[in-house]
Design a protein around this nucleic acid. Structure first.
Length: 584
RNA sequence: GCCCCGUUAGCUCAGUCGGAUAGAGCGCUGGAUUCCUAAUCCAGAGGCCAUAGGUUCAAAUCCUGUACGGGGCACCA
């Protein structure tokens, strides 16, 4: 209905414009639901926006528009109000259509099919594979996952990718950590450096490798143990230890690194699965370092291209990328004096790879502590002659965990962080997802553990799910031979004209637009608030009205209404990856 | 110092690419249940939309400055 009105309105304006030879075809007018019922169902600011161009007062223009709009089907009344708003009063009959639509479309209601589908890549989580996911990763995981399903609901093709940082210093430290724990299994006393990973999972991994390798990986050189001693509390010492292993124990290091990576990745995958997060692509950073037959590695190729495009120079023994030419604060090193490419260099190659895979949009979900990193990545994309506008980054702020109103310490030092798996076990995947996305991503979030578990209206997710369960409960209470009969219901829609019944129909009709807006703004939280509003109107209605009555006509029309509510809640929660339980 | 984000009711937060009288929950006060889930509902009180300017017919919303809070500024990943 709203779309139809918007179209008619625009046609009318163009027609009026033509009379005075003024082109209004690209003017942007707005038509929106009214908060205040006295102003009708919809209102438009069209007359106020166009009045100046036509040298008319908004009121006069509005009068003209209304004359032209008269006689449109479904409109009961048109009014001019305030400084020149055009208010639309819709007939009850035209509101009923949404109920038939929902019944016909079912699970598809609100889900768009587009002919011009966009191919979108969302990369998210991408936590270092050096330990299990903790609650700091949870928000990004929930956000990316919901965003993917939201963009799909909006008619696009979406790939979800996890970038595995399986190359570099963190992996080296991981390998050393495991090796040291491994050695300790022989009751050999040795210093365990502060900068090594402290969690108990390292010991588990070491044990596993210990069994498989039959304890053959212990370095035999006393030099090694001296280095470890030195690494106890100095970063330098740790670095020396790492490079010693790299030189002397290449084969063993590889075995340990590979098994540790495999082990941790499988844990991460399991955690994500429990959380309803499903990446369909796992991209390994290490693959960017591998030669491709006769060709250089992806990183070398990318750096060569930058060089050919004249954005590379040498200084202080290092190789730099001129990111300042694209607005970055300073130029960035891509190859260290020791000739190793930096992390940034592999990220350049990674983004180039994404572009080569021909996506229309490339979306990254990053922690907001990385925002300073974006200008250089955008710069590199531009320098590689790619369209940097295709790259969008959504920044996700950290979440605080609250228990009994107190902040739960999230120190990652000493490995005392809370694992995502523990959070899911405590509050459940549904609540965790909902609370993580209940706020705009770039804002701080207090995740209240007690609230997430509470079974009352204070808990917005419970409130929404309860509305769904209530409808299901009514359906259960019907006599055995009774059920929703769409034919009877359709003939009696004119019984649904109570104030709250109309409110419900209006709210239900907004759902497709909510999906669309939420998707286009990359803001999933909009859906949470929409569903809460819908549930609220429903609960209020339910309290006022008895659904089950002896009057078959009335019963059927009401059943259609409440089942529409049930369907939309189900669809909305579905997009969020959350269950809609039939009883609670 | 530079950059990003935020500031809306006592608290936690919404607020439709600028629109008519700024909303919700909690908390507070007072009510509703012989009845489909009271796990709910209804009513009341509560606001200088941080602040000072600017743009506009119209600003919580856009622009600039200021204050306060959070984060970021590596040959780390």
């Amino acid at each position: 209905m709203k779309d139809k009105l918007a179209e008619k309105l625009k046609e009318t304006l163009i027609k009026i414009g033509n009379k005075s030879h003024i082109d209004l075809s690209d003017i942007r007018i707005e038509i929106k639901e009214n908060k205040d019922k006295d102003f009708g169902d919809f209102s438009s600011n069209a007359a106020m926006v166009c009045a100046k161009k036509l040298s008319l007062t908004p009121i006069d223009l509005a009068k003209d528009v209304i004359e032209n709009l008269k006689g449109i089907e479904g409109i009961e009344k048109l009014e001019i109000a305030g400084p020149g708003f055009i208010n639309f009063f819709v007939t009850n009959t035209s509101r009923f259509k949404v109920l038939e639509d929902i019944f016909l479309e079912g699970d598809k209601y609100g889900i768009k099919t587009k002919t011009d589908q966009e191919k979108i890549l969302i990369e998210y989580v991408s936590s270092n594979p050096t330990g299990p996911l903790h609650i700091g990763h949870g928000r990004g995981a929930a956000f990316g996952s919901v965003l993917a399903s939201l963009l799909r609901a909006n008619g696009n093709i979406v790939d979800e990718e996890y970038y595995v940082n399986d190359h570099g210093r963190q992996m080296d430290i991981l390998a050393v950590s495991v090796l040291l724990r491994y050695i300790q299994l022989n009751d050999i006393e040795l210093y365990y450096p502060d900068d090594c990973y402290q969690g108990d999972y390292i010991k588990e991994i070491a044990k596993e490798i210990f069994v498989k390798s039959k304890n053959k990986l212990v370095p035999q050189s006393s030099e090694f143990f001296e280095l470890v001693k030195k690494a106890k509390d100095s970063e330098e010492g740790l670095n020396e230890t790492i490079s010693w292993i790299k030189d002397e124990e290449v084969q063993n290091l590889k075995i340990i690194k590979d098994s540790a990576l495999k082990n941790i990745l499988s844990v991460i995958k399991l955690d994500l699965k429990e959380f309803g997060v499903n990446h369909n692509s796992w991209f390994h950073e290490s693959s960017l370092y591998k030669k491709e037959g006769s060709k250089n590695s992806k990183i070398e190729q990318a750096l060569e291209t930058l060089q050919n495009n004249n954005f590379i120079y040498e200084e202080d023994g290092a190789i730099w990328f001129k990111s300042t030419e694209f607005g970055d604060d300073k130029d960035r090193v891509v190859r260290r004096a020791n000739e190793d490419p930096t992390y940034f260099a592999s990220d350049i190659a990674y983004h180039l790879d994404k572009y080569e895979r021909k996506y229309d949009r490339v979306i990254n979900i990053w922690g907001s502590d990385h925002h300073g990193y974006l200008p250089r990545v955008k710069a590199s994309v531009s320098a590689l002659k790619q369209d940097e506008k295709k790259l969008e980054v959504v920044f996700i702020q950290f979440a605080n965990l609250l228990r009994s109103g107190e902040k739960v310490s999230m120190s990652t030092r000493g490995g005392e962080f809370i694992e995502l798996a523990d959070l899911i076990e405590e509050v459940g995947s549904d609540a965790a997802r909902f609370f993580y996305i209940n706020r705009k991503g770039d804002q701080h979030l207090d995740f209240d553990l007690d609230l997430a578990k509470e079974q009352s209206k204070d808990n917005p997710l419970f409130y929404i799910q309860y509305a769904h369960a209530r409808v299901c409960s009514v359906m259960q209470k019907l006599n055995k031979n009774q059920k929703l009969d769409i034919n009877i219901a359709k003939k009696n829609l004119n019984l649904l004209i109570g104030e709250k019944e109309i409110d419900l129909q209006k709210q239900l009709a907004m759902f497709p637009e909510i999906i669309e807006r939420s998707a286009s703004k990359l803001e999933p939280h909009t859906i949470c608030y929409y569903l809460k509003d819908l549930a609220s109107i429903f609960h209020s209605y339910y309290n006022d009205e008895k659904i089950i009555t002896d009057d078959e006509n009335l019963l059927q029309s009401k059943l259609l209404l409440i089942n529409s509510v049930r369907q939309v809640i189900k669809n909305g929660l579905g997009v969020l990856g959350i269950q809609a339980p039939e009883s609670m």
